[in-house]
Design a protein around this nucleic acid. Structure first.
Lengths: 255, 255
DNA sequence: TAAGATTTGTTCGTATGTATC
DNA sequence: GGATACATACGAACAAATCTT
């Protein structure tokens, strides 16, 4: 909620009424310390309080809705409510920023290699047995080598879910978001762009042994070993991805 | 632009018309490969094409506007245009995600320590003399020790601008965004929450010498030295911040 | 199940503001 | 300054969703 995208009346540009109303509502939420789920005034009241038409108020609400800050429901007991921005929504909004910029697989892995080992280290000794069990359960989704491209893809998505869950378990929301965002991008690439379309037995086997070692280190509370294992895991994945990327490009050009 | 926050007609929930129109426009932009600055159909045409009222179309445009995907101008030659999401806007939208989550100074530095050294290393030998000169110019803003709390704050913001500029110079947009987002959060904290309100001579002196060393390493193309210097810089800053944070908390409680 | 109440969702017609020529 | 082309804003009415009884 901080200061909105262009919150203060900067410079000279006159801001439209919906924009000003949206900012006023944001400020109102911050001042009152409202929490997710808390009610916001209904349309009728806002119309009166701001002295503006229904359409203008509704446009303001759409502005806030797009940012994930409010949710609205119809019917009795309905209305607008303060909304907590979900991780998925935050990731989708951020993905828009990168749409017109070219981000390579190498870029993604440069960040992953810097962050994932740090995350792993900070998690060592801090996971419950239930969380460790959940990670092991995810690994069951790729307990055997993939038979075809379709299964390979499905397994890779599951493997990325392993990392996404890991990012949820930490206490650092900032670090967790960055890590899970990288996993999200790779998942989208896998699903929509058919990345990892070629079954790769080496990736499957070594990746699994890395993840097993990682879980063991996390369970033992060995932070430095967790860091080292994750680092190896990321570096191996990166080198395989570089080859895959070239192949994806070739196919794209060929068609 | 990828797949919107809740793009596909999921499960059973009926999506409102503005939401559906916004998704359709997004898809249209992606399919046609439109670029920032390209025209979108005007209100009148959208009304006709979607068979919906003006109000609904306008609400859809507000949804896209809030995400930074379109910009609208009034007057002749005006209309809606595809917009590139700016870094600032992306950062502000992401900051909303963290508003209801507690992020500590320690969390920020955990990420900075993992990323900034990597950024520094990848920049070594890849900066133009003009870019190096710009960094040196920023350092002029804190060439002398701060006399009071106000100047200390101003200098700290300038120092964060140093890191933000650094993040712009790299070729990895993902890494650059993460680094500059951390700097943005710290800047906001400095300005709004009066972080770093106490002049700290040690921070000033050692910080400056670190940054000088860093520029030298970048100019020489010594990646590993750049990485090491940045790592020291971050670790020093973190230890000072931990002390400051405690103090900020105490003051907050005392009042 | 059905009716009624409440609140958002949507439309249409009209009028105003703004930037370009 | 006036004409033009576009977004912006208003108001009244009606539709749809959903909770309560």
């Amino acid at each position: 909620m901080t200061t909105g995208p262009s919150h203060p009346p900067r410079g000279a540009a006159r801001r439209s009424r919906p924009l000003r109303v949206a900012d006023a509502i944001k400020d109102w939420v911050v001042e009152r310390g409202l929490q997710p789920g808390d009610r916001l005034p209904g349309e009728a009241e806002l119309i009166e309080r701001f002295g503006m038409s229904k359409g203008t108020i509704r446009e303001a609400m759409r502005l806030l809705q797009a940012q994930g800050l409010v949710e609205t429901k119809t019917g009795p007991g309905g209305g607008s409510f303060v909304g907590a921005v979900s991780r998925e929504r935050a990731g989708a909004l951020l993905a828009n920023y990168f749409y017109f910029r070219d981000v390579t697989i190498a870029d993604i892995y440069q960040v992953r290699i810097a962050l994932e080992p740090e995350l792993a280290a900070s998690l060592a000794g801090n996971l419950t047995e239930a969380q460790l069990a959940e990670l092991e359960a995810i690994m069951q989704d790729y307990a055997h080598a993939a038979a075809d491209a379709e299964e390979e893809r499905r397994q890779h998505v599951a493997s990325l879910r392993f990392h996404a869950r890991l990012s949820d378990f930490g206490s650092n929301a900032l670090l967790g978001f960055c890590v899970s965002f990288m996993a999200q991008i790779l998942t989208d690439l896998t699903v929509y762009k058919r990345l990892y379309a070629t079954p790769n037995h080496a990736l499957w086997k070594r990746g699994r042994s890395h993840q097993s070692d990682l879980i063991a280190a996390l369970r033992q509370g060995d932070a430095e070993r967790a860091r080292a294992v994750m680092k190896s895991h990321m570096e191996m994945a990166r080198s395989l991805m570089d080859a895959q990327e070239a192949e994806v490009m070739k196919r794209f050009i060929a068609e």
